[in-house]
């Protein structure tokens, strides 16, 4: 699965040379395209997963910070 992930990343990055102009970004500014989860929703999600799963991270935010391990 990790190999498939790397292949997808390489394919996307090598085909991502198209420059989208500011006036073409109406769709990209939609809530669903920017952040479909509020900060509070993501924080609770990360907190509950951190106490039930051994893996953590990948969100750019530091996890843990409580004695619920």
């Amino acid at each position: 699965m990790s190999r498939l992930f790397c292949i997808v990343i390489v394919c996307v990055l090598t085909t991502s040379c198209v420059r989208v102009k500011p006036y073409q970004r109406g769709t990209l500014s939609k809530r669903s395209m920017a952040a479909d989860k509020d900060a509070s929703e993501s924080r609770f999600e990360q907190h509950s997963r951190g106490s039930r799963e051994g893996a953590d991270g990948g969100t750019g935010e530091a996890g843990g910070g409580c004695g619920c391990n």
Partner: peptide, 19 residues
């Protein structure tokens, strides 16, 4: 972290955390 607009309808982001 890095995010890249791929087209007017698509965007991709990648992040790596080391702790």
């Amino acid at each position: 972290s890095a995010s890249q607009i791929l087209s007017p309808e698509s965007i991709m982001s990648v992040s790596y955390d080391l702790s």
